[in-house]
Design a protein around this nucleic acid. Structure first.
Length: 784
DNA sequence: GATTATATGGTTTTT
DNA sequence: CCATATAATC
């Protein structure tokens, strides 16, 4: 049992506690994954607990796979494959699949992702004749989602006075009705959305005592990771499942609770202690991940939150470097600074690409980083954003597969009934949907018997052609594995061929995406699975579809180049660690986000998010913010994030000038001057930008480089700098001289103005008109 | 019914 | 800026 030797005292205490509820408060980087895996190992090795009787719920499927692997390695056998381990959603989906008939669902039920669900909400709103100005699918869907996560069903929602009041005040009194219609529609479609996987699981356990007792007996030991991010639905399910043995082990960190928008509540941590008689409490406070500097900063920042469980994180790691704080002029400069710094750090400190992560608050921020990295030829991978499975061509193809598995899936049917074009348009579909509502049957039932419902001539022929094809696929469903069937679908529908014939660049990319999809299906078909999976349609399409819908961003980095810089939101970075971390966009309205500064609770969650970002770093941390950035296609000025002010100056290094940027030009590099601090000096001060928000920039005063402004008002004619372009010494520049600008091309100086320390030249460019150029920032080459 | 032009409006964060 | 929704036109 030498695996116990690697643990510190509290960790060992958590592992050795066998029966009864236990809560582990685990600070960032305190080895909670290690504790969880060792605990599972110990239960199996020392206490002879059968692997079939252990349920472990993690935040990503990847984390689940890693845990499985580690247990397997320590035990030296393959017992670990019998563990029930995965995300809440995927584990429950698997259970619901075998229990679906109890709830009136087909075992082949479809899982709707957010897009599908919103689309259903939208149809329902339209069918109820509600004004979509007030009933925005997004808002309504979120409301329904929140209800489900709180275990509030449609009937209860409608009869709840407080909810009614709230909706009425928001001018949306009929949300309850929409919820009801939406739930019925999903049921009719044989589909569950993400929240249903929890909600229906709860219903199953609550309403079917034999099912409850079956799973209570099965799961003698339950372990839950990232407990701070569980919602009430998850809480109640665990309470039910664990009620028989009460061997529930939860691990969490209240300081890292960042999913309240998904219904998660720290209350669950407090409630846990109330719900069980005697809860063993263990705190893991030694951090093994970060340098002292990084950890101190994290501690200082999080101390500004009022609501927290007391703990003090410490580390015996080295002091480490100070935290670099970098200011840039634009989001593009920020991207460039980060890319340059990565290049520099690789050379100077012998890092690999894979040692770097760039974290940000919103997915939209990835663009500037991506462009800069690509320009520098640095390999990278973006997690999240528009994922592979959300691309149109992929979704279309998958819609076929979904329809084959579950013909009642109206969303899938609507998506592909006329793709590729076969002359079945909107009017026909509207009619079919109308009939389906009248006859209370699925849309598929209508189109499959088109003649009976009065469709004629061309339309009838098209419909029959379509349904015959789908029926043919269905007849193969039980005979062929997922891949073989997918190939047939690709061929018979003509989708693959159509994309193959499209020789445009995008067409080619789409074709490749389809090939990649087919490859992934093939891989799925060829990978052996858990022994227990035999019970649910093994290698069929159904299992495949379930799996991909529940894939997390973190999950699918198969066969990719492993040495890449990773870009992701802070949310997606939870649970991960990197030697060097960049956190970008530390600006007011972005981080903390403007949507989340209205209550103390929201602001504290933003701060926890910042805390999570900081604590991802092992050795080096770079924080950056930008004076201005593009948002909605418009340049927006922002003040530095209030969180930056919470970091004591002694931990900060503001002198960092941004990698190779230091050596461009022969005047003081722009970055250096920008980084002298945001309270004074040449950079835009807080007060200055504050004033400009209200009054606008004074005429003649351009405190941002002119090229930013030009982008806002008119498109720049791109100029490729002449060979060997080097910025000239511009201290003696005067009107009449001919110059070359890196971006605007050739032009003539018409006027000089501005103070000595901040000279501004007006240049009339041949192709881009007259611009005011701040010489401190712009690079000009004097021609004559 | 399909293809193309124009308008609109949307950005937190995710299973 | 970008993606999707609606209108206009064939």
């Amino acid at each position: 049992m030498n695996y116990l030797d690697e643990l510190n005292p509290p960790q060992r205490e958590a592992v050795l506690h066998k029966d009864g509820p236990i809560m582990i408060i685990a600070g960032a980087g305190s080895g909670k994954t290690k504790v969880l895996t060792t605990r599972i190992t110990h239960l199996m090795a020392a206490h002879k607990v059968d692997s079939f009787n252990i349920l472990a719920l993690t935040f990503t499927n990847k984390a689940a796979a890693e845990m499985k692997e580690r247990v397997e390695k320590t035990l030296g056998n393959t017992e670990a494959r019998n563990l029930y381990i995965g995300t809440f959603h995927s584990v429950f989906a698997r259970i619901l699949r075998s229990e679906a008939p109890k709830l009136g669902y087909p075992s082949s039920f479809t899982i709707y992702d957010t897009d599908d669900a919103k689309s259903v909400v939208k149809t329902v709103i339209q069918e109820l004749n509600l004004d979509d100005k007030h009933y925005k699918p997004n808002i309504v869907y979120n409301r329904i989602s929140a209800a489900k996560n709180a275990l509030v069903g449609p009937a209860e929602y409608i009869s709840d006075w407080a909810l009614q009041q709230e909706d009425t005040r928001a001018n949306r009194p009929a949300i309850g009705q929409v919820y009801d219609a939406y739930a019925k529609r999903c049921f009719k479609n044989g589909a569950m959305d993400f929240d249903d996987l929890l909600f229906k699981m709860y219903i199953l356990l609550k309403n079917f005592p034999e099912a409850l007792s079956k799973y209570q007996r099965k799961f003698k030991y339950i372990l839950i990771d990232e407990y701070q991010d569980t919602n009430p639905a998850q809480y109640e399910i665990i309470k039910l499942l664990g009620a028989m043995h009460e061997n529930v082990c939860v691990v969490g960190d209240d300081a890292q609770s960042i999913y309240s928008f998904r219904g998660a509540t720290i209350e669950n941590i407090l409630q846990f202690q109330k719900d069980y008689e005697e809860v063993k409490l263990v705190k893991l406070e030694q951090n093994y991940r970060s340098t002292k500097n990084i950890l101190h900063v994290a501690n200082v920042v999080i101390a500004n939150n009022k609501a927290q469980i007391e703990k003090r994180l410490f580390t015996s790691n080295d002091e480490g470097e100070k935290i670099n704080l970098v200011r840039t002029m634009t989001d593009n400069d920020e991207g460039k600074m980060v890319a340059d710094t990565i290049q520099e750090q690789k050379l100077r400190n012998h890092y690999f690409n894979k040692d770097f992560a760039i974290l940000y608050r919103t997915n939209a921020q990835s663009r500037s980083f991506e462009e800069a990295l690509r320009r520098m030829g640095i390999a990278y991978r973006i997690y999240g954003g528009m994922s592979f499975y959300q691309r149109k061509e992929v979704k279309d193809f998958i819609a076929y597969l979904r329809l084959v598995v579950n013909p009642k899936d109206e969303e899938a049917l609507k998506r592909i009934i006329n793709f590729p074009a076969r002359g079945i348009g909107k009017t026909t579909m509207d009619k079919a949907i109308l009939y389906s509502n009248e006859h209370d049957c699925s849309v598929w039932d209508i189109v499959a018997q088109a003649a009976k419902y009065g469709f004629r001539s061309g339309t009838l022929e098209s419909l029959n052609g379509f349904t015959t094809m789908i029926k043919m696929f269905r007849s193969e469903l039980d005979k062929k594995n997922a891949y073989d069937l997918a190939v047939i679908v690709g061929k018979s529908t003509g989708i693959v061929k159509e994309l193959f014939n499209d020789k445009t660049t995008e067409g080619l990319a789409r074709y490749e995406n389809l090939q990649e999809l087919l490859n992934s299906i093939k891989e799925f078909t060829e990978t052996p699975m858990n022994e227990e999976d035999g019970e649910v349609g093994d290698k069929g399409l159904g299992t495949y579809l379930q799996q991909i819908t529940l894939l997390t961003d973190a999950d699918d980095d198969k066969d990719q180049n492993p040495d890449v810089v990773k870009l992701m939101t802070i949310h997606a970075a939870k649970g991960l660690e990197f030697p060097v971390v960049f956190v970008g966009g530390l600006e007011e309205t972005l981080f903390p986000n403007a949507m989340s500064i209205n209550t103390r609770e929201e602001l504290e969650e933003e701060r926890r998010l910042f805390y999570v970002a900081i604590t991802r770093a092992k050795q080096r941390l770079f924080l950056s913010f930008s004076n201005a950035r593009y948002r909605f296609g418009q340049l927006q000025q922002n003040d530095p994030s209030r969180f930056l002010e919470e970091i004591p100056e002694k931990y900060l290094d503001r002198s960092y000038a941004g990698g190779a940027m230091k050596n461009t030009g022969n005047h003081t590099p722009a970055f250096e001057r920008m980084n002298r601090g945001f309270h004074n000096s040449q950079g835009r001060s807080s007060a200055e930008s504050e004033a400009e928000k209200y009054y606008g920039a004074p005429p003649g005063k351009t405190s941002t480089p002119s090229y930013i402004i030009s982008k806002t008002f008119n498109k720049t004619v791109e100029h490729v700098p002449s060979e060997g372009f080097t910025a000239s010494d511009i201290s003696n520049l005067r009107a009449g001289q001919k110059v070359e600008h890196q971006k605007f091309g050739y032009g003539e100086v018409t006027k000089m103005e501005g103070a000595a320390h901040n000279p501004i030249a007006t240049v009339k460019f041949d192709l881009n008109g007259e611009k005011k150029i701040m010489l401190n920032y712009a690079k000009l080459r004097i021609i004559e």
